[in-house]
Computed example of a mutant assay.
Amino acid sequence: MSPSPLARAKDSARLLRSDLAAAGIDIPHSLALELVAHQRGAKDWNTLTATGGANLQPAPAQPPAFAPGVPVLRVVSAEVALGFYRDHLGFALDWAHRFEEGLPLYVQVSRGQTVLHLSEHHGDGSPHGVVWIPVADVRALQAELHSRPAPPRRPGVDTEAPGGPTLEVIDPCGNVLRFCQRDDG
C-alpha cells in the first residue's frame, strides 16, 4: 500500500528540513510544512490537510543538473602527449594518476575552461578521437602556436568550417582537436 498524499507531503517536509539543516539552515517543522504545501499548490498547510491532500499537485520535478563533460582521449604515451599539450598547446597538468608503477597513466590537463583527460588505459576512449573546443580568437591561437620554438606543426585556419573559423591540430597519438571561433550568426 502506497503512502497517502499527506504522508508523502510530510515526508517531503522532513527531507527539506533535514537537507537545510545539513547546509547549516535550521527551520521549524511548521515552516517546512508550509513550504511543502506551497510547492503542492495549496495556500497553506491547513488548507492542504483540510482537503486530505485531494487535488494535490505533484512535487515539482527538478531536471537533472549537468556539468560540462570531460572528454577522455586515448594516448599511447602520456609522457609524449603531455609534452605536446603543455609545451605546444599551453595546457597545464592538473594531476596524474597511476594505480602502481608500471601501470597505465591517466592525467588531466586544462587551459581556460577546457579540461581534457588523457589516458593510457586500453579501455578508455577510442584512438583518434575528436574534440571540438570553442575559442574566442582562433587567429590569436594560430599566432601563438606558430610562435612556439620549433613548433611540431604550423596549422592553418579553415574559414569555411561549419560553426566558424577552425584551427585543427592533431596530437602525437592521432587525436584531433578542433579549435573553433564560433560563428553564432
Rank of each mutant, 00 (worst) to 15 (best):
Leu73Asp: 05
Trp45Pro: 07
Glu120Ala: 08
His121Lys: 04
Ile133Ser: 04
Pro162Ser: 14
Glu160Cys: 03
Pro149Trp: 01
Pro172Cys: 07
His88Gln: 15
Leu141Phe: 01
Thr114Met: 02
Thr51Ile: 03
Leu145Phe: 05
Leu73Gly: 09
Asp183Glu: 06
Ala136Val: 08
Asp184Ala: 06
Leu103Glu: 13
Ile170Arg: 15
Trp45His: 15
Gly24Ala: 05
Asp19Gly: 06
Leu116Phe: 00
Leu145Pro: 03
Lys43Asn: 10
Gly52Met: 12
Pro152Tyr: 04
Ile133Ala: 08
Pro165Ser: 10
Val109Pro: 02
Ser77Met: 08
Ala54Trp: 04
Leu145Asn: 10
Leu35Glu: 11
Leu118Thr: 11
Val135Ile: 11
Glu144Ser: 01
Gly129Pro: 05
Glu101Ser: 12
Leu93Met: 10
Gln181Ser: 13
Pro155Gly: 05
Leu73Thr: 05
Val70Ala: 01
Ser147Cys: 00
Leu105Lys: 02
Glu144Arg: 08
Pro58Asn: 09
Leu89Ala: 11
Ala61Arg: 14
Val36Thr: 11
Asn46Ile: 05
Asn175Arg: 10
Val157Trp: 05
Ala96Asn: 02
Leu6Trp: 02
Val107Ala: 13
Pro71Thr: 04
Gly156Trp: 00
Glu160Phe: 00
Gly102Tyr: 03
Cys180Val: 14
Gly52Leu: 11
Leu177Gln: 06
Pro162Asn: 08
